[in-house]
Nucleic acid binder design. Structure first.
Lengths: 124, 124, 124, 124
DNA sequence: GTGGTCTAGACCACC
DNA sequence: GTGGTCTAGACCACA
């Protein structure tokens, strides 16, 4: 996984985990990788992974069982979708429209690109 | 002007100036507000405005005449548009599509919103 | 390190670091001193060192790993040499020749001095 | 005349006047252009030219006759040459050698360039 | 008046 | 520990 430099790594990791949950790759009540394991996989400091998990736990997306690790919360999908939908409509969409407006891009121009994008997505 | 806390203030100022240039509110070769003046207007430290200007100068959007102030560069609009277009297509658009995909939103659903957005924009 | 007053301190620091990289005292991918550390060594404000590093980063001579420090870029030597060679041929050399011409100095007169200079340079 | 941005304009003007004196284009006791006249010619602020003249007067390269203007001092050539020679040997030459050393350039490589440079100089 | 540099000190996020 | 941002205030050079 590659990280961009504009956003904190721990947030990018958390985001990626949310993606996987939303896509059903991580099911509710399923155990998520251990902090150490994921740290090795992603080649980052364990502290950084820990922060991601704490962040997700605080949003009740995952929860911890002592000595057993972190697990996907029962309503994780619903919670993530709700948060992201809110975020999308309130912040991302207006910013996106503004950019399009300043660049003189029409919504119709994006149709072809969106189709192409969707075809590249793996089935799940 | 209000600043959000996720992005550095000096970048938000720079971005806002780019907006104004792109909208034609600041014409090429026109003088931009002096560092001190803008600092008072925005209620920030002059150093912070200075950083914005240095950042824009480095992108050749504005240039400086000694003892006279900063001025909008001749190709400022072209440069800004090129940079933003690149950024939009390479980064913002894919991220946006991904969000839509994960939220199950179709492009057509956005049409109405986009029209409404556009009508709110001031003429220039 | 002593600073002359005609050039900004942060540029002199940047220049000095380039010297050290070009001489191989700082190898590619090696960590450069932390901002605070170098500030103490040089007896300047951390902000001033920071500016040097930002300046070098922008030229892709060094790069930053978050929370870990600044590191010499992989092509640092090549980049520095290219920039300096350009600067030398386009600006320094003509200015130098002009001075010699106006002072009536011949190139041959400098030979002895150059030899003497070179012998004083430390090996590396 | 074009000004580079690294050195103060008034110093570049003063330097240029010294060049002309050294080349004999301005003879001892000859009147130098009036502040206003030179300001128009160079398209700079009269204050800037004034500063150049004050700077040169302080070095006894030119002197002023009230109501008549500035004139080249009797020993101007000698003074300029002495100052420049000193400056050249103490500062420019070591810096120049250092640059050559770091760039791996030999003195002999410059011979051809120097000849070419000299042939382009106008006779005087 | 203008930009530009520097210091001192604070606070934050990240690893 | 690391970089990064911001404020406050000073001083200088330049036009």
């Amino acid at each position: 996984m590659e990280f961009n430099s504009t956003q904190a790594i721990y947030l990018q990791i958390a985001d990626h985990l949310c993606d996987r949950i939303q896509l059903g790759q991580l099911a509710p009540e399923e155990k998520v990788p251990s902090v150490r394991e994921l740290a090795v996989t992603l080649e980052v400091n364990p502290n950084t992974v820990m922060r991601s998990y704490e962040h997700l736990q605080q949003q009740e997306v995952i929860y911890t069982k002592r000595g057993m690790g972190y697990f996907v919360g029962p309503d994780a999908v619903k919670k993530i979708t709700a948060m992201r939908r809110e975020q999308f409509l309130q912040e991302e969409l207006p910013a996106f429209f503004r950019r399009m407006y300043l660049l003189g891009i029409e919504l119709d121009e994006l149709k072809g690109r969106f189709e192409k994008f969707r075809q590249k997505q793996p089935k799940h």
